[in-house]
Design a protein around this nucleic acid. Sequence first.
DNA 1: GGCATAACGATAATCGTTATCACTGTGGTG
DNA 2: CACCACAGTGATAACGATTATCGTTATGCC
Lengths: 126, 126
Amino acid sequence: MSKLTTQRQAILDVINSSNRHWDADELTRSLSDAGKPIGIATVYRGLAALEAQGLIHSIQLADKKRYERADKEHHDHMVCTQCGHIEEFSHQTIEQLQQAAAHEKNFKLTGHQLVMFGLCSGCQQE
Amino acid sequence: MSKLTTQRQAILDVINSSNRHWDADELTRSLSDAGKPIGIATVYRGLAALEAQGLIHSIQLADKKRYERADKEHHDHMVCTQCGHIEEFSHQTIEQLQQAAAHEKNFKLTGHQLVMFGLCSGCQQE
DNA sequence: GGCATAACGATAATCGTTATCACTGTGGTG
DNA sequence: CACCACAGTGATAACGATTATCGTTATGCC
Ligand SMILES: [Mn+2]
Ligand SMILES: [Mn+2]
Ligand SMILES: [Zn+2]
Ligand SMILES: [Zn+2]
């Protein structure tokens, strides 16, 4: 298991201190702005290490990967195609039905990602 | 509405003549091998045009986009993380519950993508 | 036939991510 | 304490998928 270096702790702190879904570049800039400059390669390696240790979670969007804190219950995401806002939701029955569907196809499930696209409540006002 | 040129018809024919999920490069090579060389940029533009017209569908995987025929009932995908095999499944209840979840968050749903990761039946035999 | 226009194709550019590599910090070991 | 091993760092090159550019080509219409 890799170690929790100063840089990785700093990344983890930023992520854990908010409910945002961060990309690598945003984290790099946030740390720079906070007076803790960090190499972009270090950010990518740190994110991979932190995720491997289960300390953060990620969602793979069309263009890039976004990371969020891991200390929340499992949830899936609705992404606003207008403003990029990410809404979270949990649905226990959907989770169960996924297991059932996998079982039926003889598929050994290790993970899943459900992303819904559309307009957030704010963006419907126009 | 863009036109269905010779090149786009050729792309559509390849996709419609199989149940595979194609990426741009595979299509380019397939057409070349069939004696119908086509520029890679033309493939990308053609795929975008065909999808905009609803003639093909796509799924966005981590690294690349894959295209498939649109003349099948809506379904979601299980992707084998070992061999890349893509298994399809439909689940009416999951679809309905997604609508309900969106409604509950005041989210105007326009699309979704559910991908399950794991091992296909073949890859569990080891 | 001549024109307008959309599409084509070669290729440059873009962008997120990973690989390389010289260098640094840390944690044992003698 | 001095020395080593080695994972991690950071600048930067490389990569791969996709998009932009731009001169050329095909098509439909007058
Ligand atoms: Mn989330
Ligand atoms: Mn499919
Ligand atoms: Zn929005
Ligand atoms: Zn498999």
